[in-house]
C-alpha cells in the first residue's frame, strides 16, 4: 500500500516562496488565502529558520475526526480531502488541525468561509464534479514539492520521503563528526 506524506527539511528551506506560488498557480487559489505558507521563526537572529506549513495529511487526521458533517475524508493512500459542497464552514477542523492548515477565505465568490486546504494537488481550489457527482481528482503530484527551490520540501510515498531525509541527516552527521 502506498501512503503519501510531506516532510519539511527545515535546514534546507530558504523562504523563497516558490511553494506558495507554485501552489497558487497549480490550484488557482485566489488572492487572500493560501494552501501553503512559509513561517519564519527567530527572525533576524541565529536560529532563524523557515518552515513551509500546509496540510500534512495526518495519519489519524484530527480534522476528519472533528468535522461534524463528514466533509473531510481520507483516501486509502493517506491523502486527506474535502468536499466543499458539504462543508458548512463551522471552523471546527481549523481548531483540530495541529498545522493550521484549514483556511476559511472571506471574499471568495461561491466559497465564502468554506474550508480550503492543501490536497496534494489532487483537487484544485475550485472543485469540479463529474456527472455522477464525484469530485474529479488528479494524480497526487504536489507542485510545492516538485517546484521547491532547494528540495527542502519532500513529499510523496512515505518510505521514499523518510529515506531521503534519513540520508541527508546521516550525511550531515557523518561529515560533522569526521570533521571534513
Amino acid at each position: 500500500m502506498v501512503i503519501y506524506k510531506f516532510l519539511d527539511d527545515v535546514d534546507r528551506c530558504i523562504d523563497c516562496g516558490g511553494c506558495f506560488v507554485a501552489c497558487k498557480e497549480r490550484n488557482q487559489v485566489p488572492v487572500g488565502t493560501s494552501r501553503i505558507s512559509v513561517q519564519r521563526i527567530n527572525e533576524g537572529k541565529p536560529g532563524e529558520r523557515y518552515v513551509a506549513m500546509s496540510c500534512m495529511h495526518c495519519t489519524h487526521a484530527p480534522c476528519e475526526q472533528a468535522c461534524p458533517v463528514k466533509a473531510i475524508w481520507k483516501r486509502e493512500d493517506g491523502i486527506v480531502l474535502m468536499d466543499k459542497d458539504k462543508c458548512i464552514g463551522c471552523g471546527y477542523c481549523g481548531w483540530a488541525c495541529p498545522f493550521g492548515a484549514p483556511k476559511y477565505p472571506h471574499d471568495v465568490p461561491n466559497y465564502q468561509v468554506i474550508m480550503d486546504k492543501g490536497t496534494f494537488c489532487v483537487i484544485p481550489f475550485d472543485q469540479q464534479k463529474d456527472a455522477a457527482g464525484n469530485i474529479i481528482q488528479a494524480a497526487p503530484d504536489p507542485r510545492c514539492v516538485s517546484f521547491c527551490a532547494t528540495k527542502a520540501r519532500l513529499g510523496g510515498e512515505t518510505n521514499e520521503v523518510t529515506e531521503i531525509y534519513r540520508q541527508r541527516a546521516a550525511g550531515k552527521l557523518m561529515s560533522r563528526q569526521v570533521g571534513v
Binding site: 501512503i3 516532510l7 518510505n159
Partner: peptide, 16 residues
C-alpha cells in the same frame, strides 16, 4: 502523535 511517520514498509510506487 499526529503525523506518525509510519515505520511499516510500503510497496514502492513503481512510477516513483
Amino acid at each position: 502523535s499526529d503525523i506518525r511517520m509510519s515505520r511499516r514498509t510500503f510497496t514502492k510506487l513503481s512510477a516513483v
